[in-house]
């Protein structure tokens, strides 16, 4: 699996079915691979140490910052939704669009290894969507988002939700330029999920605990799950929700619309 993951497969990344072409902006560092043949240089002086002290993901972070500035200049509030596959991200989005789509003017960037099923679900629900297919890669990065943004009607968007590839580990390392990082777990995954996959919670601003309508049928104690989550990340904002019944979504909506970066818009 490891060898199939990452930049080596970037050529296979598609956005709405079209192969992603790399292009570079003047203000970003070029990232060409030039292997071998470095030629001889006059000042060659044997082994020496060069101090670098740079963040390994600095290039991704620069691009993410560019995305963030771009979105903020258009007055768009953005979220990056991360969870395991099957936690109900797309269903939650469908419910969010159904309930608040008109006032929020939602656009969605869907990340999946394959198929445009989720983008079609979002479009059917009444929002606009761009599908990124990552091929074998296990996460979205800032460059993919940058390209996807070119396909979005930014003037007609107030809320952008990026639905990351279903994976609780790899996507957490990559800043995409979002305002809020949202982690989602669901009740059937077990109340100790926040402890089993703590890295996501540690970097997230919000935790949505989905499928709470199923709790009566499960050995799942919501209070325990919340307490464990707060032990992992004391600052995290937690909202129990149900994509099925819509329960709890109003509280989440009220919270993020009151953060000042996005208003409730026309009722």
């Amino acid at each position: 699996m490891c060898l199939e993951c990452g930049c080596s497969v970037k050529g296979e990344v598609t956005i709405n079915g079209q192969k992603m072409e790399h292009h570079h902006h003047d203000h970003t560092h070029h990232d060409d691979h030039d292997h071998g043949d470095q030629g001889h240089h006059a000042d060659h002086d044997g082994g020496r140490e060069i101090s670098i002290q740079r963040d390994i993901l600095s290039k991704n972070n620069q691009l993410a910052e560019h995305n963030r500035e771009h979105l903020q200049s258009k007055g768009i509030f953005s979220m990056n939704w991360i969870s395991a596959p099957g936690s109900g991200k797309t269903a939650l989005l469908e419910k969010l669009i159904q309930e608040y789509g008109e006032s929020l003017q939602i656009s969605v960037i869907e990340g999946d290894q394959q198929t445009d099923n989720d983008a079609r679900r979002i479009i059917n629900a009444g929002a606009s969507a761009v599908q990124i297919n990552t091929g074998a890669a296990c996460h979205l990065d800032a460059s993919m988002i940058h390209h996807a943004l070119h396909q979005i009607d930014l003037e007609g968007t107030r809320l952008l939700v990026i639905e990351n590839v279903g994976n609780m580990v790899c996507p957490t390392a990559y800043d995409l330029g979002e305002d809020l990082k949202v982690a989602i777990i669901s009740a059937p995954e077990g109340e100790d999920k926040p402890v089993k996959y703590p890295d996501l919670l540690l970097t997230a601003d919000v935790l949505l605990i989905n499928k709470i309508d199923l709790i009566p049928y499960l050995d799942f104690n919501l209070e325990n799950c919340i307490a464990l989550s707060q032990k992992v990340n004391p600052q995290i904002n937690i909202f129990p929700v149900s994509a099925k019944t819509g329960e709890g979504l109003q509280a989440f909506y009220d919270w993020f619309t009151s953060k000042g970066q996005i208003s409730k818009g026309p009722a």
């Binding site: 990452g6 930049c7 080596s8 691979h33």
Partner: peptide
Amino acid sequence: MHEVSIMMSILD
């Protein structure tokens, strides 16, 4: 799982 991609960033 994303270590190959991280390693490519390191090499860059």
